[in-house]
Write a protein that binds this DNA or RNA. Sequence first.
DNA 1: GTTGAGCGTT
Length: 175
Amino acid sequence: SRRRHTGDRVSLENPTPSRCLGVFGLSLYTTEQQIHHIFSKYGNVDKVQVVIDAKTGRSRGFCFVYFESQDDAKVAKNECTGMEIDGRRIRVDFSITQRAHTPTPGIYMGKPTHIGRSDNGYDRRRDRDDYYYRGGGGYRERGHYARGYRHRSPSPYYRPSRRYERERSYSPRRY
DNA sequence: GTTGAGCGTT
């Protein structure tokens, strides 16, 4: 059989280990306090930063957790990825970035966070949902989400392994 | 309480 050789390659899928974890796929309502409480089980946590959208003031659905110890961060990463918090299955990885960007007062240098409407008021997100609801059987009814396949689509960050899917699809870890 | 496409701009 063929075994893919990855070596020590560092990429978006394989960030270099550090004390800083990125936690993605959070509910918008999950707080830094909750995350702190949950992750502290694996070691001392210095700080949790939920990333807030500057425009809306709401969570962008991800956060960063700083452990005192890299070893603890590693354990937490392995134990917490796939965990369900506030009804959302989270993904945990070592952070690619190690700190927030240096502020640039007055000029927003970040990525745009929402898809704007085009000239004629057409909204892509809306249209996409309509598409899925129209399709035979529908989107929700087929259990696409419920079975944990939501990360299947192209993402530079996440490639679930078969083992992961077997073990985590139906029974998310609890904290 | 928008369900997602997500690595941070105090």
